[in-house]
Every structure is written in structure tokens, then in C-alpha cells.
Design a protein around this nucleic acid. Structure first.
Length: 843
DNA sequence: AGCACGCCGACT
DNA sequence: GTCGGCGTGCTC
């Protein structure tokens, strides 16, 4: 009997299939969540579409999720909830992206929801707002306070109100939130979540002539009728001057921006309204793409390659026959961009999509304008300085096919491409391709390589100073290698000279931070009306403030670092947590007046330049001067304009900037770059110094000059910079890396353990390190070790570094093992409040 | 992540 | 005696 019933029911079920969807939710929980698909949604729901789901105990909390899987297996241990709403008929994410999300979460040891969170522009995640409504079933079983009555009366006047609206209606300080709370308790009101898309298309109001007047005779009649109304006639004439519908009548349907017609005076505005009222004109609204205007006026330019560039381009194409990844090693100023453009055009002509990745700072108008001249509005731009609405438009433009080509930063690897033919990673060695703080801690170059792999696209990595790892792959034959060792046009590489600061100090020829050699060169350069760039990789005025009489140094109360003195704002600042305090006039411990600044940053250099060269114009470019939205652009444009003599900056001036008139580069404190306590310090120093030097003498004319101030000119890396000897540096570094089993011979995973109590942090780190050493061996596990800055925001840090060789090890299994050990610790009673972060392929 | 539930200090 | 602190556990 029972059996029969079951069969009956299951056959019944199979006809009315119940659908379930496994969803990616934007939360840091390492799994998918299963929801029921409402019957009416079953036909339309697709993998990759966004849905809205209720989540958590509190009824009303909703999240935007992505459909990862559709099936009909009910979950065994719980009752699945229903999906609320389907947002996309056409999925906004491709199957490639879902595969990519999965790969990233596995490889970089994070949750898939965290990947979704950084991948989707927040405009594609819906926002929900709590709204309050009068409960129609409420029949006053309880007494209400006076305030509650007032609020209820307000609510009855409206269908629903938000907390903010109620607050406003009730008056300032009315404590509406508390009243709402008590009314909820009395069941007098209902709270619900109103969900809406954040993305709002930009609408433009347009006008066009009524259809009747599109014909010539009718139009003449109209104009005649308006003879006596000159103002109205003028408006019509103005419209006709913008829309020549005599020649092309179809133009009328596109209409004209309303603002163009009533630009100047109020009279024409009222005339226009009259004309609209009399149905001569009609108004309508259209969606205006946010990018459409930007490039309208740019003339299309054809790119001509030099022989060297043409040869590089065809070598790359030839290598793509047998390699999926090619490294273009081209010296600074060799004109790699033209080679890229040539390859991009070829890829686009073959009908596939192209992605061009650049580090944030290099993605200025300089490069964008150049590309727009060639590709016009088929090119999308994906930049973190763009608004969310703009990013959603690029996203949708990629889905719709409007943008076959996108130039963008790190996060552009998450765009919904489905037919990539070519990915270019420019300035491939740039560390800003690695995301540091929120998970996923991904490297855009490596993600790009995976993305290309799935879509059978080719990858071109470009750099004047390739990452050691990349060059190694090329040397091993796993990547192709093409070299471009000739500067563009007549230009030659700059002449690099070392300036011995120790010696000048002895001879007393230093003026503050400036050697006489550098001052002389700056002066001569200004006389020639040529521009100079000065590089010091430290912002602020000085990194220390110290008392000469006692040992007191200004320190951050929350972090284990000294405070940096910022003269412009007359304050001491912590560069780790943002703590600020005023500058003490007297030493806080001994009361001495001899409180001095020690060391120098960009601000101090800027200051001293004004003293040495009062006539000169100096600009500073660092984090502090580029906070504002368009600050980069402004500084770069101003410097390009030529009214500025000297640009002082931190590493952000090293990245791909291209100025015609710069012939001198000065580098301060090269020693600090070289002696940074990190196994990559030499490589970094070489890259940084070579890159800044490359800003000099980029156009034919005079050879550029680079002066490097150092206390020890004997350091081998400096000689290699002078000789532009990348290969020498590579050989030497590689030996070191092999001896100590660092990348490219191993993969690194850094675990950072954090807690407000140093003892607990240390205990957790030690236990974790011990367990890992046990399983992996002591040669693979380093630490725990206190990092250089051992306390940040009052959290005590410990690092464990894991080195796993590249060959013959199941790295996936190792990661799983590490994650399991981390989870063990996080479930331990005494240690569970520690935070442990894994950084795979840490830099 | 957010949110609720739950057990211990300073307050009407 | 309560309001609220944040430790703990869960979310389909």
C-alpha cells in the first residue's frame, strides 16, 4: 500500500518537476546555497542570471545572487526557500565567468561569494531599503502613545514610507526609529524591504518636429504661419540648422537635445513650450549611453609602424602559431603601444574580442585618447575612477557586443567576455595587478592567462622590465619571447650617472638633500626650458619626528610605526591606519624645544626646490595630491602643458607616463629601494629605477640624463641599471632564487595571523606553523615571524610563509590541507577569534 | 558579512 | 532589578 502511494507520488512529481537552483551569494561562506525556483520562473531562469533571494532569519533581508546550477534534487536536510525574483532574462554573466569564479576561489583560497563581490560592479547588485506600511488588520487592541498616533496618521496618508522619510515628517530629534520599533511590537505597522536596481540609465530629453511637418510643403506653410511670431520662428529655424531634414528627413526622428534649443534665453524657452503645446514639436526621452559624447570629435588616425615595430608585431603573430603566451620585452620608449594597436586591430578584424589591461596609474587620458583615435566608440573603458553606472554600461556593452574591445584595470578581467581572441597585459611586472586587501587576492595577469586559456585566446605580456617569473617562463620555452631593443624614432636611452652622496657630504657640497651635481643639472635643464622629474619613493615631509635631547620619536598609538610629518596640513600622520595628530612644539617627554624632523619625503623636496629655484614651477604627484577625482589628469595635463619645470613624485610617476619634453630624471635615496628587506628588493629596485629613468629623453633631439643619488655607487644592481643590463640582473637573481627556493622555483603562500592580544596571536601562529611543518617539512615552512610592522590598528601580526616547489606536488591538496589546519584553529575555543588570511602567490 | 540569540556589568 | 556589551553560531 505504502509503496504504491510512493510510486504514485513520484510519478506525479516527475511530471511537475520541482526546480532547484544552486546560487552564488555575495557573502564569505564557502558554499553555494540551494533555493527553490517558483513555477512561473522555471521556463525563464538560466545559469548566469541574477536573482533576488531572501536570506537569513530576519525576514526582509534580501541579496542578489547568481544562478550557478539548475537541478531537481531537493536538499536532504533542510527546506529550501523560494527565489523572490529573476532579474535577467538574458544572463549577465557567462559560463566562462562562472568557471573563472570557481577557479579563483579555489586557487586563491577564498569564497566564491567574495569573488562575486569584487567581480560585479555594485550597480549590478540590487539595493534594498526598509519601508514601513500601516497594517490594515490592526484594530487598536492596545493603547497608543501620542507620538505613535501621530506616526500612524502620517503612515495612513501614504502607501509606504522609508525610515528617513518618517524621520523627516516627524521632525528633527523625534526618535522615529524607536516609535517604529514599538509599533512593530504592537503589530500596528509592517516593515518590508523595497528592492530596486541601483543602475539608472542616463535619460536625455529631446524634441523633434511633428511628423506632419517633415514634408517640405507643410514645413513652408508652418514657417509662413510663424512669420508673425518671430521668436517661435527663430526656434524652428534653429532646430532646422541643427537637423537638416531637407537633405535627410529621417534625421528628424532622432530629434535634438532640448538644451540645445533653449540654450540662452528664457524667451526661447517659452516659445518652445508654446510650440510643443501647439504640437509643432513633440518631446521624448531616450537612454543616452554615458560614453557616447566623449569620443565623437576625435579624428580617426591611422597608425604607422616603424620597421622595428612591424617586425616585432609579425614576430609576435608568428610565435602565436605555436605559443599561447608571448612576452614582448621592449625597452622604455620603444613604442610598444603601436605594436599593441596593430595586434588589437588584427584580432578585432578576425571577429574576436580584445582585452587590454593596464595598471591603474598608466590608464590616464594619455593612453586612452591615443586608443580612442584608432578605435572610436567600439572601445570600452573600465576604470576604478569611473562611476558605478558607467561600469555597468561597459559590462552590458560587452554582453550586447557593443564593446568588442575594452581597455581597463585589474578588475576588467571579470567582464563578461565570451569570445576573446587576445589579451594584452601591459607593464606586466607591475605589482598593482595583485589585489591586496579584500579577498580574492588575485593577480590579474595570472587570471588573464586562465581566462585566455578557456577561450582559446592569445596573451601578450609587455614590459621593459619583466617580472622574473615571466622571463623565466619565456626562457624555459613555455612563453614566446620577442624583443624590441630600439627606442622609437631617433631617441636613444638616457645617460645614467651615479652621484656619490657620501663624498659630496664630505666635501660639503650637498645642499640639504640635493647634490651639487643634481642642482647643477636641474638649473641647466631649466635654462634650456626642458622639464625634469624627481623621484623619491616616500610621501609626506619627513618620515620621523624626533627629540634631539631624549630618545622620543613620534609613534602611532595603534601601529608599530613612526608618524610621518606632513607640513602642508601641519600634522603627524600614520600611513597604516590613518591616525592623525597635531605637531608637538615641545618634546612630550622632556619638554625640550629641539624637536626635529629626520629623513625626507616628496613634500620636503618640493619645499626645498622652491628655496633653491624661487622662479621655478614645481608640481608634486603622490597619494596626497591625487586624492581628488581628477587630480591625476590635472597634474599630468599641467605638466604636459609645459608651464611646469619640475615634477616631484613617488612611484606613481614611474608608471608608463609619456612626456615629450622631459630630459632630466633625478632619483633620491636609491639605497633605500635596494636594501628593502625582501627577497624581491633587487628586482624591484631595478624595475623602479629603470622605469623612472625611462621617462627621460623619449623624443628625438637630445639624449636624456638620469642622476641617481646613492651612498654606495659600488652596488652591482646600479651598474646593471646604467648598462640597461636586464639579462645580467636576471641571471644573477635567478641563482639566488634557486639557492633559497624562491619563485620562480616555488610557489609562495603567506598566512597572516592577527589578534588584538599578542599572546593569542602568537599562540595561534605557532600552532599553525607547527602543524604545517609537521606535514610539509621544515624546508617548506618559514616562521611564524613578526612582520616589519608587527602591529597595525592594534592588531598583532604574525606571518607564516609556505614555499611549495612547482614540480611534482599536488598544490591543490596542499591548499586544502592548509585550509583544514586554519579551520581547526578557528574552531578552537581559545583561538577562534584570531583572523587568519591566506595570500596565494603573495608579492 | 550581517544578524539573532545568549549570558555578565553600570544604571534608571 | 533592567539595558546593552560583544562572544557564538547560522544562514539554503
Amino acid at each position: 500500500m505504502e509503496n504504491q502511494a510512493n510510486t504514485l507520488f513520484s510519478s506525479f512529481d516527475s511530471e511537475e518537476i520541482t526546480f532547484f537552483a544552486d546560487l552564488i551569494l555575495p557573502i564569505p561562506v564557502p558554499k553555494l546555497f540551494t533555493y527553490r525556483v517558483p513555477r512561473g520562473m522555471a521556463d525563464d531562469i538560466k545559469i548566469g542570471a541574477r536573482v533576488i533571494v531572501p536570506f537569513g532569519k530576519k525576514n526582509g533581508r534580501v541579496l542578489t545572487a547568481i544562478v550557478a546550477k539548475l537541478h531537481n534534487t531537493p536538499p536532504a536536510t533542510y527546506q529550501a526557500r523560494y527565489i523572490n525574483e529573476l532579474l535577467d532574462e538574458i544572463p549577465l554573466t557567462t559560463s566562462y565567468q562562472l568557471e573563472l569564479f570557481g577557479w579563483i576561489s579555489e586557487y586563491y583560497m577564498c569564497c566564491i561569494g567574495e569573488v562575486m563581490n569584487v567581480a560585479l560592479p555594485s550597480g549590478l547588485k540590487i539595493s534594498s531599503q526598509s519601508k514601513v506600511q500601516f497594517n490594515p488588520d490592526f484594530d487598536y487592541p492596545e493603547l497608543l502613545t501620542e507620538f505613535e498616533e501621530v506616526l500612524l496618521t502620517e503612515l495612513k496618508k501614504h502607501s509606504a514610507l522609508s525610515y528617513e522619510e518618517l524621520e523627516r515628517l516627524m521632525g528633527e530629534g523625534s526618535n522615529a526609529a524607536a516609535i517604529i520599533k514599538s509599533l512593530i511590537g504592537k503589530k500596528a505597522i509592517i516593515v518590508f524591504e523595497e528592492v530596486r536596481e541601483k543602475y539608472v540609465p542616463k535619460m536625455v530629453r529631446k524634441v523633434r518636429l511633428n511628423r506632419n511637418y517633415e514634408e517640405r510643403e507643410q514645413l513652408l506653410v508652418l514657417l509662413q504661419r510663424l512669420e508673425k511670431l518671430p521668436k517661435q520662428q527663430e526656434v524652428v529655424m534653429r532646430y532646422l540648422s541643427h537637423v537638416p531634414l531637407q537633405r535627410t528627413p529621417s534625421l528628424n526622428q532622432k530629434g535634438l537635445d532640448k538644451t540645445i534649443l533653449n540654450q540662452d534665453d528664457e524667451l526661447s524657452q517659452s516659445s518652445l513650450s508654446t510650440l510643443i503645446k501647439n504640437q509643432v514639436f513633440e518631446t521624448f526621452e531616450i537612454i543616452q549611453p554615458r560614453f557616447s559624447d566623449n569620443d565623437a570629435g576625435l579624428p580617426q588616425v591611422e597608425i604607422k609602424l616603424t620597421d622595428a615595430q612591424r617586425s616585432a608585431s609579425s614576430q609576435i603573430m608568428a610565435q602565436f602559431e605555436s605559443q599561447n603566451i608571448v612576452l614582448l620585452h621592449g625597452i622604455t620608449g620603444s613604442g610598444k603601444t603601436e605594436v599593441y594597436i596593430d595586434l588589437i586591430q588584427q584580432a578585432l578584424n578576425s571577429g574576436s574580442q580584445v582585452l587590454y589591461l593596464l595598471p591603474e596609474i598608466a590608464l590616464t587620458t594619455q593612453i586612452v585618447v591615443r586608443l580612442q583615435r584608432v578605435f572610436g566608440d567600439t572601445m570600452g573603458i573600465y576604470h576604478s575612477k569611473f562611476s558605478d553606472n558607467e561600469r555597468v554600461e561597459v559590462w552590458k556593452g560587452v554582453v550586447s557586443g557593443q564593446y568588442q574591445f575594452v581597455v581597463g584595470v585589474r578588475s576588467a578581467v571579470f567582464l563578461p567576455f565570451d569570445n576573446l581572441g587576445l589579451i594584452i597585459v601591459d607593464e606586466e611586472h607591475e605589482t598593482s595587478y595583485k589585489q591586496h586587501d579584500p579577498a580574492p587576492r588575485y593577480h590579474a595577469r595570472d587570471v588573464a592567462i586562465m581566462l585566455a586559456h578557456w577561450q582559446q585566446a592569445k596573451v601578450l605580456l609587455g614590459s621593459a622590465t619583466p617580472a622574473l617569473e615571466t622571463y623565466y617562463q619565456a626562457k624555459q620555452g613555455r612563453y614566446g619571447l620577442v624583443e624590441l631593443f630600439q627606442r622609437f624614432g631617433e631617441a636613444t636611452l638616457p645617460n645614467i650617472t651615479l652621484v656619490n652622496v657620501q663624498q659630496e657630504k664630505k666635501q660639503k657640497t650637498m645642499k640639504n638633500e640635493f647634490s651639487s651635481a643634481l642642482l647643477g643639472a636641474l638649473e641647466a635643464n631649466m635654462e634650456r626650458k626642458e622639464q625634469s622629474i624627481l623621484f623619491q619613493n616616500r610621501r609626506g615631509y619627513s618620515p620621523y619626528m624626533q627629540c634631539e635631547d631624549c630618545d622620543w620619536t613620534a609613534e602611532c598609538p595603534n601601529c608599530a610605526v613612526s608618524l610621518t610629518y606632513h607640513q602642508r596640513d601641519a600634522e603627524l600622520r600614520c600611513h597604516y591606519c590613518g591616525h592623525k595628530e597635531s605637531v608637538p612644539r615641545l618634546c612630550p617627554t622632556c619638554g625640550s624645544t629641539k624637536v626635529k624632523t629626520i629623513g625626507f619625503g616628496t613634500e620636503k623636496l618640493e619645499d626645498q626646490l622652491q628655496i633653491f629655484f624661487p622662479q621655478s614651477r614645481v608640481l608634486r604627484m603622490d597619494l596626497d595630491t591625487t586624492r581628488a577625482k581628477n587630480a591625476y589628469q590635472q597634474i599630468i595635463q599641467e605638466f604636459e602643458g609645459g608651464q611646469v619645470d619640475i615634477l616631484v613624485g613617488t612611484q606613481m610617476i614611474t608608471k608608463g607616463l609619456d612626456f615629450d619634453n622631459v630630459s632630466l630624471v633625478g632619483i633620491f635615496d636609491a639605497d633605500r629601494l635596494i636594501h628593502f628587506p625582501d627577497f624581491r628588493a633587487t628586482e624591484r629596485a631595478f624595475q623602479m629605477i629603470t622605469q623612472v629613468s625611462g621617462r627621460a629623453g623619449r623624443r628625438a633631439g637630445r639624449q636624456g640624463t638620469v642622476l641617481i643619488q646613492t651612498s654606495n655607487p659600488q652596488q652591482p644592481v646600479l651598474q646593471k641599471v646604467i648598462d640597461n643590463n636586464y639579462k645580467g640582473l636576471y641571471e644573477e637573481e635567478l641563482k639566488e632564487r634557486q639557492d633559497f627556493n624562491y619563485p620562480p622555483f616555488s610557489r609562495l603562500i603567506k598566512l597572516t595571523i592577527r589578534h588584538t592580544d599578542r599572546a593569542i596571536s602568537h599562540q595561534a601562529a605557532q600552532r599553525l606553523a607547527a602543524e604545517l611543518t609537521d606535514a610539509l617539512g621544515s624546508s617548506r615552512v618559514l616562521g611564524p615571524e613578526e612582520p616589519l610592522v608587527e602591529r597595525i590598528r592594534n592588531q598583532f601580526l604574525f606571518d607564516i610563509l609556505i614555499k611549495i616547489e612547482r614540480e611534482k606536488v599536488n598544490i591543490k591538496a596542499v591548499k586544502t590541507f592548509i585550509q583544514d589546519r586554519i579551520n581547526d584553529i578557528l574552531t578552537d575555543k581559545g583561538l577562534r577569534q584570531v583572523s587568519i588570511v591566506a595570500d596565494v602567490d603573495c608579492l
